[in-house]
Design a protein around this nucleic acid. Structure first.
Lengths: 396, 396
DNA sequence: GCGCCTTTGTCCTCTGAGTGGAAAAAGTAG
DNA sequence: CTACTTTTTCCACTCAGAGGACAAAGGCGC
């Protein structure tokens, strides 16, 4: 199949495409109920979309009491690629135009190996998905990277944990390799978009999405749109001071949140506890695996290990303290907690909630849900697909 | 003169009104250069505005090499009332439609006397301005109050320092009394709008405006628009924890920023220092006035008093620490410091800058100006006038 | 099977917004 | 006074979009 290159010709068409993406197949009449256009105008715009091939007719819809209508849907052959480059692994998924995940694979990989090695891996994974018959090609791709991005150009800027990526033209390079439009964003922003599109944040215009993985970041959504800040580094909360004169951090300061709680910090604390003989559970795991990660701490906590629980609780308290400040400042309608350490689950959530509800004013917390993300590792790739579809479904 | 009641009939007219407000009198041709409309269309819309009486013809403009053009300007008889209700005083100003301040008066008043008493005062001040010939009546009024506001209805909600105001229909009541449209907002948001309209933030789309007065608050501007949060309490940073297990605060927690630095905290610290004999300068002022306020501390600092300087420096450090966190999170293009304590001037600013530049990542601070507000006490009332003019100059 | 009603889709006309060119009006420069 | 600019008005033309009429297609009661 020849890949689609068309874009909506005006705002109405863009609106219709997004309705079909978010609501699935629809009849002309149902669309008409949602867009406040005259039937004639609607018919004209739908016909134009059919001509471009972006949408196709799809049989007859059920009768609503009169003549049955013809269904319209986004071209089922359209394919988006969602790529989520994490600090220690890469997720790649294929979706259709309705952003349903058709295939999703994960591969461990250290982002510090640099853009060339990582993209080789990404392209191999994309090829694998294509080979398995899920796609013949891609109409667009969204890429998430674990650091700040100059969004319009799709270029990472001064990413602390991605040496070698600074200034690398990710968007340009991947667009060339994949032969399709590409958009690049911070992985945390994509997680927020994922949860907004298909997760817990579907109906909330203003919310925060805190991702706790190797590092800590926060996606900020204002009025339904991701807010990226003046230089693209908004949401970089890992280096907010959580403990005055606390632990030294890689950034050069002391007491950063990330130095006290994150996947990396948790692993280090667990190792220390195991070596000091504070936890039999962790020590035995250390012996078995030769190393400890956040996953081991989660498992130990699930097994009732007091030391592991305490580590999680203390980390949750620190994180909750920082989030409490952000809640006072930003007054969100929802806080989503996600990322690798969500395996820590409700112990972590409870600690965070306690701090936030205690430290922020009632007006801001009164009706504020603090919840775990619904989509897990899929949030990033769904958000990536959403990013590129938002781009392609906007007037050129 | 009969007060204006017309509103722009469409987005083009609204655009033109705002251009005339922000750019002063303009010829049709100059307007045409800015709005990307055909000459014919522009002429039609200008004619309609002339019919409504919102704008008037205003003589001939200078020649640009050919036929001289007729100037168009906002009706010079239009008057807006800007009201800034602070914790301890009330500011009221009259502006023309171009938001130039024609008269500005201030009166000490404790907001805790309640809405009825305060509005009596406000109305008396408005009457005084009217009596002095500055206005025959008002076409709209903007009101700032020192607490969170449910913006669409113009009603304060759960304001901590304004007992008796909770749920009081400020917008409704004042609209009735003044006989013109009224909009109500948080005083900090209005300060931000004031600095955006006529102060240091004219060209910055995303910035923070920190107001340090009796309390501490922060106006948040995203994409040129004030962000108010889900329940209208965004920017309420006075109760972010600045000192773990620090001083008890009126809100019930400990270590809130406001408990450690604000006009009230500073006065209390100064009193303590004077009584303990730590500062001869402050002690003598205490004896003279019978009490100490932030103004005394500022004066003592200006006179070189070490204790006063230290108080300011320490407060600046605390504030800077909190702002550093907000800068990491929000990545603004500018931070404006304003409010009653700006008299503390550069000692305060230096302390804040030091903390922010030290604690936030270079990407966020690299090109981040941190400056004092330009407008002083006028920021609030100009912001208030701007608020109501934005409202009235939008399509009905 | 048959009429009657409802819903859907198409066609056609009408309106009003907006564009762009021509020309008139009002200047300046020499 | 003449040649050239700029501003303003006027007018014919285009085009998006609304809304009504009507045909097509189906459900439902009899």
């Amino acid at each position: 199949m020849r890949r689609m290159t068309a874009r909506p010709g005006n705002a109405h068409q863009a609106r219709l495409l997004k309705l079909l993406r978010d609501g699935g197949p629809n009849s002309r009449a149902q669309l008409g109920d949602q867009v406040d256009l005259s039937r004639s105008k609607l018919a004209v715009e739908v016909d134009r979309l059919l001509e471009t091939g972006l949408v196709v007719a799809d049989g007859l819809a059920a009768s609503r009491g009169g003549r049955r209508s013809h269904n319209i849907r986004l071209n089922p052959e359209l394919r988006f690629l969602g790529v989520d480059i994490g600090a220690t692994s890469v997720d790649v998924a294929v979706t259709n135009a309705e952003l349903e995940t058709l295939g999703h694979i994960n591969h461990p990989m250290d982002v510090r190996e640099g853009p060339v090695a990582v993209f080789e891996q990404v392209l191999a994974m994309a090829a694998k998905l294509r080979a398995s018959g899920l796609a013949e090609g891609f109409d667009g791709a969204g890429i998430g990277v674990p650091g700040p991005v100059r969004f319009p150009e799709g270029i990472p800027v001064a990413p602390p944990i991605m040496p070698g990526w600074d200034g690398f033209p990710v968007r340009e390079a991947l667009s060339q390799e994949l032969g399709c439009p590409v958009m690049v964003d911070n992985d945390v922003n994509l997680m927020a978009m994922g949860e907004q599109h298909a997760g817990v944040a579907r109906t909330v215009p203003d919310f925060l999405c805190v991702k706790i993985g190797t590092g800590i970041g926060c996606g900020i959504v204002v009025g339904g749109e991701v807010y990226r800040g003046t230089t693209g580094s908004a949401g970089d909360i890992g280096h907010i001071q959580a403990v005055p004169d606390g632990r030294p951090c890689a950034c050069g300061n002391r007491g950063c949140l990330e130095a006290h709680f994150s996947g990396a910090a948790l692993a280090r604390d667990a190792l220390e506890a195991a070596q000091q003989g504070l936890s039999a559970e962790l020590a035995s795991r250390l012996e078995t695996n030769g190393d400890l990660t956040a996953v081991d701490v989660a498992a130990a906590a699930a097994a009732g290990d007091a030391t592991a629980l305490e580590l999680i609780r203390e980390g949750g308290n620190r994180t909750g303290q920082v989030i409490a400040g952000l809640v006072s400042f930003f007054n969100p309608g929802l806080v989503v907690i996600g990322g690798g350490v969500t395996g820590l689950g409700h112990t972590l959530l409870a600690a965070i909630r306690t701090q936030v509800y205690r430290q922020s004013l009632p007006l801001a917390t009164g009706n504020l849900p603090i919840v775990l993300g619904e989509l897990g590792p899929a949030a990033g790739v769904i958000g990536a697909a959403r990013l590129i579809s938002d781009h392609l479904f906007s007037p050129a």
